[in-house]
């Protein structure tokens, strides 16, 4: 078995009085889809933020590709997020002033890809996610499902190695939610990206290869022989 892509061990994190994570652990292999399940307030979003280097845990380590995110500088973690990770959130992630195409091109532009090339690649991803028609519209003018597909396109456009999706279908109805999940997991699989999928919905989690349950800040990693 090859070395895991992302490993977290002994993560502790509290926000003031609130304890969000207690000794949480997780490993993700190259290209696999892992669901992080838990009720609201269980600490699953915090776990995702720690894994993605957005939040620094109070204790513990997060190793991506042999490097510990916890000891990295802010700039290094920003660069890592820009280049190796992609993100899909529940809502409010698209910049309202930019067109959908520009939103998708944004991570590339942040990585200093020239505008023309960035927008061309962004266009291909919009096509891959079946939302070509919204390219020139602003996020306020598209439906929730289209917006989420644009967000998925944006998460994938840099060909990241891990995609972090936090309740990506939370604001969608089942039909649109299923479509987003299908496109997200297929596109991730095609480009070889691993997916960390935070959700409280079992049907969304069912798109994963395996699940991790977070309860009261602790992870329960039940490996059931398939």
């Amino acid at each position: 078995m090859s070395a895991p892509l992302l490993v977290a061990e002994g993560l502790h994190r509290s926000f003031g009085e609130t304890v969000a994570l207690v000794d949480a652990a997780l490993r993700i292999d190259e290209g696999e889809v892992v669901a992080v399940l838990g009720s609201s307030g269980s600490g699953k979003s915090t776990l995702l933020h720690c894994l993605a280097g957005i939040v620094r845990p109070d204790r513990g380590r997060v190793v991506f590709d042999g490097r510990d995110l916890v000891t990295m500088s802010d700039a290094q973690r920003s660069a890592l997020r820009r280049e190796q990770f992609g993100f899909v959130f529940q809502f409010g992630q698209l910049v309202p002033e930019l067109t959908c195409l520009e939103n998708v091109a944004l991570p590339l532009r942040l990585a200093r890809v020239p505008r023309r090339e960035a927008e061309q690649r962004a266009g291909q991803w919009l096509e891959r996610l079946e939302v070509t028609e919204v390219a020139d519209k602003r996020p306020g003018e598209v439906s929730g499902g289209q917006g989420q597909r644009v967000a998925v396109a944006r998460a994938l456009v840099t060909r990241p190695r891990v995609i972090f999706a936090d309740e990506p279908t939370g604001a969608l109805d089942s039909l649109n939610g299923e479509r987003v999940m299908r496109l997200l997991t297929e596109a991730a699989r095609d480009s070889g990206a691993a997916v960390v999928l935070v959700t409280h919905e079992a049907r969304v989690a069912a798109y994963s290869d395996r699940e991790v349950v977070v309860r009261d800040g602790r992870t329960r990693n039940l490996e059931v022989a398939a």
Partner: peptide, 13 residues
């Protein structure tokens, strides 16, 4: 604020 936090999350300097 949410948008800004998100932009930073995706690695915006």
């Amino acid at each position: 604020r949410r948008l800004l936090a998100m932009l930073v999350a995706v690695g915006t300097r």
